[in-house]
Design a protein around this nucleic acid. Structure first.
Length: 475
DNA sequence: TTTTGAGTTGTTCGA
DNA sequence: GTCGAACAACTCAAA
């Protein structure tokens, strides 16, 4: 007699390799029913934005295809999580649900409810790690408090036991006697056909576990050696581009950690790259300890900061029409590809928060809707860091100069030329500050400022001084 | 309890 | 053009 099947409820863990919840189900000898429940109505659930939904569609399709190679498949259902899982258990006779632990406040509340309420349906819930290298409660100061500064956090994390070894994907999965019905995810409208705003996403990305591993391979084959410097160059392919794969759990941080560590544990490139994985860990550590992170400034005095309400400026920022080429290039890259280079994210975010003095939550909301790697830990933690109200935040006088940043990190202007083509014919010496071009130079570049490309919507020096004054007044 | 050293990513000014 | 100092003071984490 076959034991009752186990439901493996997928979330942000859309992979087969190094998936403790799946591996445990496979090893138990019971049939495995992989399910994904889209619960858009869960309270405060931060439903994925447009770019994330596009990615989710592709990632679910890839997971289903991988499961079919093992003779299994992915069952997808849309609805309230608890009743949907209970219904599936009723249809299949399942008595156990496996899932990977999550750390978003709404997800932790949902898991607590599942833990409480599933037994009434005769179902046992088992939760597993796998989305982080270190569980948040495992990294504590000597007094037992959570860390609030990155460097001691990461030092303490690295000084303990190394992350568990990555598990291989299960080689076989037992099928149930009969598969329950699955909805066609195509009917979920995760990807809208018209208007086809996703053309740029398709060109830039391919979701799925295999592509996540390809991205890691590419990093290790070359860019990792020059990572400490090249990661800051938006005109080069110096970053890993792993963020959306990691967000959706197509690859586990433990897999990354061990492969990078094996590649060169003491070299500057691997150390720096793993520190970026560390920032992801730190953000989750913060979110799990301070669930208000997405909504409230970590430093409470910022609650009274007089953010400006300037709809026209906000729109100009979103559209990449601020008149500052590096900011505009980044904002257009975001809209076109669902991603923005990290260095440019800092500059664009700083511009919104300091030059325009528009609140960080407005910026975070736009990023949430447009990033394929939109993440409820990293996104608000990083915005708060830039705004100066976060944990371990930049000092208030640290205001990025978008011209200087462009000249330093995009010295030839290649990045700006790519994303702001109306400036493409300007020489490198003018491309980050086109308003300094003479009439002759503008004519030679076929450019009329104010018509083809905006004049700066604020003056850098004046905006900088106003931000410094406002921040000083708050303290 | 008190003390001490340190803290992702910058800019500007004046010598 | 290059360099060091100033930009503030505070909080965190460990000794």
């Amino acid at each position: 007699m076959m034991p009752p099947p186990t439901l493996v409820a997928f979330g942000l863990d859309l992979r087969l390799a190094d998936h403790p919840a799946l591996t445990a189900a496979a090893k138990s000898g019971a049939p495995v029913i992989p399910v994904f429940v889209l619960d858009d109505a869960a309270p405060d659930c931060w439903r994925p934005g447009g770019a994330s939904r596009w990615w989710l569609h592709g990632s679910l399709a890839a997971l289903d295809a991988s499961l079919r190679e093992l003779g299994s498949r992915l069952i997808v259902r849309r609805g309230e999580t608890i009743s949907t899982l209970a219904a599936l258990a009723g249809e299949t006779g399942a008595r156990t649900v496996h899932m990977t632990r999550r750390y978003e406040p709404w997800a932790m509340a949902l898991e607590a409810r599942l833990h409480r309420e599933l037994p009434a349906h005769g179902i046992e819930l088992r939760r597993f790690g796998g989305s982080l290298l270190f569980e948040p409660e495992a990294v504590r100061t000597k007094t037992g408090d959570p860390y609030k500064v990155f460097t001691p956090f990461w030092r303490a994390a690295l000084s303990g036991a190394p992350p568990r070894p990555a598990k291989p994907a299960p080689r076989t999965l037992l099928s149930p006697a009969a598969w329950p019905n699955s909805e066609p995810p195509g009917g979920w409208n995760l990807r809208t056909a018209s208007p086809d705003w996703a053309a740029g996403l398709r060109e830039a990305w391919e979701p799925g576990e295999a592509n996540a591993h390809d991205a890691l391979d590419r990093l290790l084959a070359g860019p990792i050696a020059a990572y400490p410097g090249d990661r800051d160059r938006p005109d080069r392919a110096g970053t890993s581009r792993l963020s959306p794969h990691l967000h959706f759990g197509e690859i586990s941080p433990a897999t990354i950690w061990h492969r990078v560590h094996h590649h060169g544990a003491d070299e500057a490139g691997p150390v720096k790259f793993l520190a970026e994985i560390g920032w992801r860990e730190f953000s989750y550590h913060l979110l799990s300890q301070f669930p208000d992170l997405p909504d409230k400034p970590f430093r409470a005095e910022f609650a009274s900061f007089p953010w400006r309400d300037d709809a026209a400026a906000l729109t100009a920022w979103k559209r990449g029409q601020t008149g500052y080429p590096l900011v505009d290039a980044g904002m257009r890259q975001l809209r076109a590809t669902g991603w923005m280079h990290n260095r440019v994210r800092m500059v664009a975010a700083s511009f919104l928060v300091k030059h325009l003095r528009i609140g960080w939550r407005r910026g975070a909301a736009w990023f949430w809707d447009n990033l394929v790697d939109a993440d409820l830990a990293s996104n608000p933690a990083s915005w708060q860091w830039v705004a100066g109200c976060g944990a371990d935040a930049a000092p208030y006088f640290r205001i990025f100069n978008p011209v200087k940043q462009g000249e330093t990190f995009d010295p030839d202007g290649a990045y700006v030329r790519r994303w702001v083509p109306e400036l493409a014919r300007l020489p490198a010496s003018l491309i980050h500050a086109p308003w300094q071009a003479s009439a002759l130079e503008l004519a030679a570049a076929g450019l009329q400022l104010g018509r083809d490309y905006p004049l700066p919507i604020v003056d850098h020096a004046a905006a900088r001084n106003a931000a410094l004054a406002a921040l000083k007044a708050m303290g």
